[in-house]
Nucleic acid binder design. Structure first.
Lengths: 134, 134
DNA sequence: CGGGATCCGTTATGATACTG
DNA sequence: CAGTATCATAACGGATCCCG
């Protein structure tokens, strides 16, 4: 054997997932929730129900199409309710379901991590890019 | 006014983010971490350091290319260290940094949510699709 | 107002072949 | 073993026009 041995018994990391199936579930969820807008929409709806164009305004740069698609997907997954008022002009309210609100917490945990470590990541990135740039 | 009033004062959701800047940070992170493989790789490395092909085998369906790209990105962000042993055949170990391990926790929180609510989502999806299928 | 339908460029990802 | 390079394609996302 020409390659060195790696030391075994690295301390088990707290909070990690242990079941292989879990990995798929997490990945599935992130594949679902990790798109460009879902989290933003969920967070905005976390501040209360919103109409379509209210959301659009608050999100600023989202296109109509993506907002529609995002909301449809959220509705499909039972995270958001869509209430149509048969008025003229039409009005549609979107609101988080219980399930949707429950998602807000782990997302916020991730958000907290993101905020706390944003700079560390930025610096690591700079270091890496400087080295690579040589 | 022809449209009904929405009741204000929806109970503030616990755990949500309050600062607009936070939203961007979360979205940025999810845009970064929410790709197809990052979480899976981080989780696998959470079980201990791994060699390139060990990872590839454990992840199963990942292509060589994507594993390389994923690992490079993780290294760039300071979440993973890459250790090259100048042996023959070559050997490269990947291992989570402290920062990488700290990410494991919020990711696991999200993972826990995913596992807990997977069925609820699946059922909501079925209901939605049945209705849409009419 | 709240979408649906379509077109089209960009990005992400996979397959394959080659290398130190 | 651990990549790199290239090509092909699929998914994503924006812009635009149209409708009830």
């Amino acid at each position: 054997m020409t390659t060195p041995k790696r030391q075994e018994g690295t301390s088990p990391t707290p909070g990690m997932l242990h079941v292989p199936g879990d990995c798929r579930a997490v990945t599935e969820l992130l594949g679902r929730v990790g798109d460009k807008w879902t989290v933003l929409v969920v967070n905005t709806l976390g501040r209360g129900p919103r109409r379509f164009n209210e959301l659009k305004r608050e999100l600023g740069s989202i296109s109509q199409r993506m907002l529609t698609l995002t909301l449809r997907a959220l509705e499909r997954d039972g995270l958001v309710t869509r209430t149509v008022f048969p008025t003229v002009p039409p009005r549609v309210d979107y609101e988080l379901t219980g399930l949707g609100r429950s998602l807000l917490e782990p997302v916020s945990a991730l958000g907290g991590w993101a905020v706390s470590n944003r700079e560390a990541i930025a610096k690591a990135r700079q270091r890496f890019d400087r080295r690579a740039g040589v």
